[in-house]
């Protein structure tokens, strides 16, 4: 029997951590979406109400919150495509670890592009 400290076939490797991160980001995005539909619904109340609440998204602190949100969504999206490939592509299961690293690289590239852009939007420049 495999020892817990050395990990089993599944435990502690790319397979497990991608699953943990997919689950955590999925829950996070879900709760944000509930709030986001509610704040958008304020367009039916009045322009002033909508602008007041959407204005809170433009503060420097929230700018970092949005970076975290985008990071979560982009990871969940790319890793979701990886899950689809594992399930439907013939070579998927064999390449799942490789695909996890590709997901991380693509994710890092997206964040390297988005973070400066977001900081420029927020702090000017």
């Amino acid at each position: 029997m495999a020892k817990a400290s050395t990990g089993t076939l599944y435990r502690g490797n790319e397979g497990m951590w991608s699953w943990v991160a997919h689950r955590v980001t999925g829950v996070g995005i879900f709760f944000f979406l509930l709030v986001h539909v509610l704040d958008t619904s304020l367009v039916r109340v009045s322009p002033e109400a909508y602008n007041a609440v959407i204005g809170t998204y433009k503060t420097p602190i929230m700018a970092f919150g949005e970076i975290g949100l985008v990071a979560g969504i982009v990871f969940h999206a790319f890793n979701g495509v990886r899950i689809v490939l594992v399930d439907f592509w013939k070579g998927g299961p064999k390449n799942q670890k490789k695909m996890f690293w590709i997901v991380l690289i693509l994710w890092a590239l997206m964040m390297l592009a988005f973070i400066p852009r977001q900081l420029m939007h927020t702090f000017g420049g």
Binding site: I54, Y57, A77, V84, Q118
Partner: peptide, 27 residues
């Protein structure tokens, strides 16, 4: 999931990347 990649990335591109990003969002 596959359809949402397109819809959400498009949404983020138009609302958060293009123009002045979050700062353009208003009524």
């Amino acid at each position: 999931g596959v359809v949402l990649v397109i819809l959400i990335f498009g949404h983020l591109f138009v609302n958060l990347w293009s123009g002045s990003g979050v700062h353009q969002l208003d009524f």
